[in-house]
Amino acid sequence: MRYSVLAKGAKRAPPVMCVAACELFGGNRLAAFPTACALEMVHAASLIHDDLPYMDDDPSRRGQPSNHTPAMPSSLSAFATLSPKHQSDLVPETRILRVIAEIARAVGSTGMAAGQFLDLEGGPNSVDFVQEKKFGEMGECSAVCGGILAGAGDDEIQRLRRYGRAVGVLYQVVDEVLEEKMKTKEGDDEKKKKGKSYVGLYGVEKALEVAEDLRAKAKGELDGFQKYGESVVPLYSFVDYAVDRGFSVGASS
């Protein structure tokens, strides 16, 4: 557990996004910390499972060998951290229950698990769905949880939902483009990767277009938060950071 959760090279994007979304609505940063930690653990658990031999079979993750210990400890322990006892004086219990349901939905059979399933079993046309589920859900869930904790309204939650989803997929598309660039630079042999990707399906050009679309979409959602002034800046920076990594090869993690 520690090995994977505390690995160096993690971006900690889910927890940071959660805290940023919470502060956007004037929520207390401390109120978001337990949820932020839980999100990072859920994220780590999903990576451990994706790396298993019969899934994506990745030999390394975050620059160290992947976990590959028995599957169960990782998934169960992630939920153990939902134990929200130190939150209840900062956040009403009804909101905590909504956050728990939100995280569960994001990783469950209509969320990330569905994405991974179709990635392994689905046809080639499912790439949009797979990317949205596998990578968009975590972003969506992170942003939405922050909003719920701070007591955001329904419209605002919907906006965060679309924003988070776009950012999540955006990260992945840019990752793929970077990987492709690294490959051609080093002149590696074309490595057949399992799974469905935009780059694999449409090529780098089209993937960059997709990235631009997503960037515009994410920022469009944020424009609705103008009235909150400066506190929306951290959420903009997520979008730009995701894309701008593309210009300096080698800084991909």
Partner: peptide, 29 residues
């Protein structure tokens, strides 16, 4: 094996979601 791991993960997630969403007649606390 892949589906067994995923279905297990999904069941675990649904268990928590179900308690949080479907429990009635009990205080949130």
């Amino acid at each position: 094996e892949d589906v067994a791991v995923l279905a297990g993960d999904a069941l675990l997630a649904f268990a928590f979601e179900y308690i949080a969403v479907a429990t009635v007649g009990v205080t949130p606390a």
